[in-house]
């Protein structure tokens, strides 16, 4: 028998009732239940938005303390703080769809993120090449050949039979890949059900952490 405090019993009860109300909404078409579910969902959305805000405040406080204590690499924290406050002021004064906000998005955020992904492409090619040096086995060779078939099958080479590689690519994606992915999705679903049941029954209490 597990000894639970009054606080724990209260928390488990709130969680279980909320979960059962949301779950029953899938099975019972009752207006009271539907309204109750809608209210709970609205609360969840508001809390999620507040959590985002808390995350931003936490990020800023961490970088602010780094700048104040002049820790190593605090210059980067200073850059983050300055960028944050400029973006915040522009967004708060003119709105997210104003041309100034969009200028920051188009000429700062977008090029930086795109460049990082461009570098990732080069790094991935290099990693695939080095994989055969580090781990020269059958699976690595299969991995490399499948990657090449998928890549070349995506485009149509003018001097090659166009359908051959494209058909190989489509077969790989439709049969082995779909089969494997379906197994992963079913695994995720079963894991989610198990976790949900454990939370509903109070066996898992993530809100206590």
């Amino acid at each position: 028998m597990v000894n639970l405090s009054a606080k724990q019993i209260l928390l488990i009860s709130i969680t279980a009732v909320t979960g059962i109300v949301i779950l029953s909404g899938y099975f019972i078409d009752d207006p009271v239940l539907i309204n109750l579910r809608a209210i709970i969902l609205q609360w969840t959305i508001i809390l999620a938005a507040v959590a985002l805000l808390v995350g931003v405040i936490n990020l800023i406080s961490v970088h602010f303390s780094k700048v104040i204590t002049r820790k190593r690499s605090s210059i980067y924290s200073l850059v983050i703080l300055v960028s944050f406050f400029i973006t915040l002021i522009v967004g708060a004064l003119y709105g997210p769809t104003n041309h100034l906000s969009l200028w920051i998005f188009n000429y700062v955020q977008l090029p930086i993120e795109t460049s990082l992904l461009g570098i990732t492409a080069v790094i991935l090619i290099l990693a695939a090449i080095r994989m055969l040096n580090r781990r020269p086995n059958t699976l690595s060779i299969i991995f490399l050949f499948v990657a090449v078939i998928i890549m070349v099958g995506t485009v149509s080479i003018p001097w090659l039979e166009p359908s051959l590689l494209a058909e190989a690519r489509d077969w790989i994606l439709r049969i082995p890949v779909t089969g494997g992915a379906r197994g992963i999705i079913i695994g995720i679903a079963l894991g989610t059900i198990a976790t949900g049941l454990r939370v509903l029954m109070g066996a898992d209490r993530p809100y206590e952490n």
Partner: peptide, 27 residues
Amino acid sequence: FSLTVIVASVILLVGGLVSAISAASKL
């Protein structure tokens, strides 16, 4: 996009082959 994908694929194949030969000679 098409030409870049083909170049990337050729690099993968040639680089992979060289890596495999180098690994085999090391062994």
